[in-house]
Design a binder for these strands. Structure first.
Lengths: 272, 272
DNA sequence: CTTGACTCTCCCCCCACTGGAGGCTGTATA
DNA sequence: TATACAGCCTCCAGTGGGGGGAGAGTCAAG
């Protein structure tokens, strides 16, 4: 019969931890004095404790360890658990490696320019959105106003009000001089019927979108694109779909010059 | 003035999170209605929020982000923080990779033997211990009893009682047929004076010890050594110091055959 | 009998939220 | 004007794996 302090010294596991393992039922003392509450351990329990430490080291949670230890698991079950863990850890390693790449890209950027970019580039998941849209070809992006006019008109005719920020999709694979294939979209909810020229569908979710917020008139939007494209290049992604411009705060008068316009550029990407 | 729900939709950050950022002072709404408590945001704040997300993505804690954002940091400071992060992440990546190696080694073991080893191998840090010891050459390990006799006698003469489990150090670089260089040690506290033949000193801490618990008589201790050596080999470590046997529960009569003896083998290692 | 080391329970703390209860507020509709 | 109902508020509890400390009881040696 060993008291908790000695058992702690033998096993080099903190007393607090032993009490915690008792509490969660992972390692119960062989005897607990009814009157004093003192915990008494046996040498045999060091083996179980060591097994706990080993499994913890492999990255299992205490709950999983409890199940593993008490379930009298077969080698096949153990194999299954380990393979599961393996893939989880692999993913973790990859995530951390990507994070590292992002930190390094940021560092390089500072080294080169000795200043911080105006743009904070972020990778995020974007949910599916139900939208109404009009797609067409216009000479240059600033001339997409006509498409917006069409869309607004058709939505107004159905008495539909948009829910959320509107956006444009740029369907061209690469930048062009003239004749851009642009789809202008308004998020909608509930029943909206498509009509000639207007599509209603669900824009699928994008698992990873590289995004930046541009805060200023459209005239300077290209700076944001520059920052984004540089980032994508440096972090080893490539573009895998139409770029979105989300108009977080469109201007009431002229977004081309209004300095209070806020726009988010979203580029769907995949790891190269 | 945007209400929290719309701001949440625009930024794709959950409402709960926005409220939390308000609470911790990371992103305060431009106005909070005194009467209703409603939070009101501005479009400009999306930029700050995006910067928060970007820094979070680099792995900074919210507290660090708060400092980074509010301290008006120079590029040099930012560089310093990033380099710090970089090394932290690198270490994390390496740790996870090592963990992965351990999982894989465990998997291979199951594949090969289709059963689980009796021994759970664990890497741990071992603190420095102050010990009294007697070192000598004996024909074979089971014959180290004479060294123990000497040590006990000298300690008894000083009225010293050991504190904690005693241990042996095996100083030979490789296993031998005969004439082992063994040091038998008792942990001690306070003032103990060395005498002829008995050393008193601090056994230095070992940053990484590969350990396994053997539960059974000394006769079968070699199985534990086999398991340990195999593990060390498979995980790409190498031995970097004298192996320790820690007698967690020595037998009162004969440890050679007593099945209740509990011994821990500790092998100091380094990554190859 | 006293001292000091040991142990007990109980509570709060960490991080970055998430979920839920219960109660206001604001807007649209009947 | 009454009533839905969506949106917002605060407060509380919980996550995992313990760490730190208070206050009180217990054990063994001198």
């Amino acid at each position: 019969m060993i008291r908790i302090g000695d058992f702690s010294q033998l096993s080099r596991v903190p007393i607090k931890t032993l009490r915690y393992y008792d509490e969660v039922g992972l390692l119960k003392p062989v005897r607990v004095d009814d009157f004093t509450g003192y915990r008494y351990y046996e040498h045999e329990q060091i083996a179980r404790l060591n097994r706990i430490l080993a499994l913890k080291d492999l990255g299992f949670s205490l709950e999983q360890i409890g199940q593993l230890l008490d379930a009298g698991l077969s080698p096949e079950q153990m194999r299954g658990m380990l393979i599961l863990r393996q893939s989880e850890i692999r993913q973790r390693v990859q995530e951390e490696a990507e994070r590292l790449a992002r930190v390094e890209s940021r560092l390089r950027q500072i080294e080169q320019e000795n200043e911080m970019s105006k743009y904070d580039v972020v990778v995020k998941h974007v949910d599916a959105i139900r939208i109404a849209s009009v797609r067409g070809v216009v000479p240059t992006p600033p001339e997409q106003g006509s498409l917006w006019g069409e869309l607004e008109q058709m939505l107004a005719r159905q008495g539909i009000k948009p829910v959320g920020a509107c956006l444009s999709l740029y369907h061209d694979e690469e930048p062009k001089e003239r004749d851009w294939d642009i789809e202008v979209c308004e998020p909608v909810a509930g029943d909206v019927t498509a009509s000639r020229g207007m599509n209603v569908y669900e824009l699928p979710a994008a698992p990873s979108m590289v995004c930046a917020i541009h805060h200023g008139p459209f005239q300077t939007l290209s700076q944001a694109y520059d920052a984004l494209m540089k980032w994508i290049d440096e972090n080893g992604y490539h573009i895998c779909g139409p770029v979105r411009e989300v108009y977080l705060r469109p201007s009431d008068n002229d977004s081309q010059t209004d300095p209070n316009t806020v726009t988010e550029i979203q580029v769907p990407v995949m790891k190269a």
